[in-house]
Computed example of a mutant assay.
Amino acid sequence: MDLGSIKPERTGLVIVDLQNDFLHPEGAYARGGQKNADISALPESVLPIAEELRQKGGWIVSTHFTLVPGKAGEPFISPHLKELRPFLTKGDFTPGGWGHALVDPLQPADLSVEKVAYSAFYMTRLEWVLKKAGIDTLIFCGIVTNGGVASTVRDAHVRDFKTIVLSDGCAAFSRDTHDQSMGDLGTVSTIMTCAEAQTLIEGL
């Protein structure tokens, strides 16, 4: 990718699923015993990039994993997810709820999109709002590297967005899984550290 062609006002930092129910000590995953130091550290790592991009006129785009409530508020949960995360229950990842929201340090987002699968492009308005905003370059951070991040990056790639993935701005529940996924994503995206991306944005 030609880094010299990047324009800050056409660039979006895509924050994949850094939500209270995933990260906060009182969120759904902490309640289920699913804590991870690498994931917990992400907001602090990503914040300087978000602040710099805001100052340069860029966009903050937040994707939100969502459990859509059905009758009596009981969520629709895919069988594979229910097997992996049996602790998920009514009220978790509910649209408009506290647990569904972007973590406080990274707020506010300019654009927010609910998603129901790994990719934030699947059955969502993400591509539409990105095009309306004039965004052609996406810098990715968030969780999990091998799931929501990887799927969304690949879908962005086939839609001809220029993409950058922050190697230390993403995390998975396993460091080995994260490292392997970063290697795979290097075939379709430019890989940078948070420090390298901040330097890039500062120079735009």
Rank of each mutant, 00 (worst) to 15 (best):
K132I: 07
V46A: 03
M123Y: 07
G183D: 13
S112E: 15
T163M: 07
G134Y: 03
L88A: 06
I191V: 14
L126G: 08
G134L: 05
G142Y: 06
E26G: 08
P48Q: 12
Q34E: 12
M1V: 01
T199N: 13
G57E: 09
G33S: 02
A195Y: 01
G70R: 05
P43Q: 10
V14P: 00
L3K: 00
G169A: 07
V153Q: 08
D160Y: 10
G32A: 13
L81R: 14
L23N: 04
A37E: 15
T89A: 14
T199K: 15
A72C: 00
A197C: 15
I6Y: 00
L130C: 07
Q19W: 03
P25L: 04
S62A: 15
T89F: 01
V153Y: 06
L166T: 06
G148P: 06
V165W: 06
Y29G: 01
D110L: 06
R125S: 14
Y118R: 09
P69W: 02
D2C: 00
S189M: 06
Q180L: 13
G27M: 02
A117Y: 10
P43T: 10
K90A: 10
T94N: 04
S45V: 03
L13T: 02
I191L: 15
T177A: 06
G12R: 02
L84H: 10
T163F: 07
A50R: 12
R159A: 07
T193G: 12
L23K: 04
V116M: 11
T163I: 07
R85V: 04
N20K: 09
H100W: 15
Q34C: 05
E196T: 10
K131T: 13
V16Q: 00
G4S: 09
L23Y: 05
A28E: 07
P25S: 11
Y29V: 01
G58D: 11
S40I: 01
V149T: 11
V68Y: 04
E196D: 14
K132L: 13
S174H: 11
D184I: 13
I143P: 01
F22R: 02
L18A: 01
Q55N: 10
K90R: 15
F22Y: 11
S189Q: 09
T190N: 04
A195H: 08
S189V: 10
C141E: 05
T66I: 07
L67R: 06
I49D: 02
T145S: 14
G97S: 15
I201R: 07
T94I: 03
D92L: 05
G186R: 08
V144T: 15
E83H: 04
V16C: 11
T152G: 04
M192A: 09
P105K: 12
L81I: 14
D136P: 05
I191E: 04
V14F: 00
W59L: 11
T124H: 13
V103A: 10
F65L: 08
L3N: 01
V46E: 06
F65C: 02
H24L: 01
K131D: 08
L88H: 02
P69S: 09
Y118L: 11
T89E: 13
A117K: 14
P8E: 02
H178Y: 03
D155T: 08
G70Y: 02
I15R: 00
I191T: 06
S78L: 14
L102D: 07
P86L: 06
K131N: 08
